[in-house]
Structures are given as structure tokens and as C-alpha cells.
């Protein structure tokens, strides 16, 4: 599979994700602020333990050929 095919697949996946989220937004019921108690719980944060998540992703990124997705930033390393 050449790079153009991979890129096309990636863009299609992104478009699908965007359309999916847009449709959810369009048809979802509103959640009032006083109904957001469960969403506010620590375990419902996208990364409840930021240092632990950073440590794990650093280890994965050092031993695998992939990185990204979760955010931008941070410096490189000479990890072997």
C-alpha cells in the first residue's frame, strides 16, 4: 500500500470521525450543568493521572515506530 493510499484512508477516517461527532452533536439532548456531576468525577477525565499517562506513552513511543494522537509538544530523546 503506497503512502497516497494510506493518507487517503487516514483522511477518510478523520472525516468519518468528524461527521460522527457532528451528528451526535446535532441530535444529542442537552446536558444541563447540574446534570454533569458524573462527568466531573476524577475518573471521568480523559487522563485522570497525567503523569502516569505521560510516563506510559513515553515508554511506548520509545519502543515503537509510532507516536502522536494524544497531543503535541514535548521534546525528543535519544531513547534506545
Amino acid at each position: 500500500m503506497n503512502h497516497r493510499t494510506r493518507l487517503l484512508r487516514l483522511l477518510m477516517l478523520s472525516a468519518w470521525a468528524g461527521l460522527f461527532l457532528s451528528s451526535l452533536n446535532a441530535c444529542s439532548l442537552k446536558v444541563a450543568p447540574w446534570e454533569r456531576g458524573n462527568l466531573a468525577k476524577q475518573q471521568m477525565a480523559l487522563d485522570p493521572d497525567a503523569l502516569d499517562a505521560a510516563l506510559s506513552r513515553h515508554a511506548y513511543g520509545s519502543k515503537e515506530g509510532s507516536s502522536g494522537g494524544y497531543g503535541v509538544g514535548g521534546g525528543g530523546c535519544g531513547c534506545n
Partner: peptide, 30 residues
């Protein structure tokens, strides 16, 4: 309940925003 005090609502709003946080930089608080 919606009738909670302003202080509680403010705290809830802050916590809600924390729950909705997006990815930021490495090791950054969300």
C-alpha cells in the same frame, strides 16, 4: 440539584470543565 448554592455551582462548573479537558502538552494537567 439545581438549587444548590452559588459556591457549589461554581465548584461544579470548575470540576466539569476539568472533566471536559482536551489533550494538551506532555504531562500537562487537563
Amino acid at each position: 440539584a439545581a438549587t444548590n448554592s452559588t459556591a457549589t455551582s461554581s465548584k461544579l462548573t470548575a470540576l466539569t470543565m476539568a472533566a471536559l479537558a482536551l489533550p494538551g502538552m506532555v504531562a500537562k494537567s487537563h
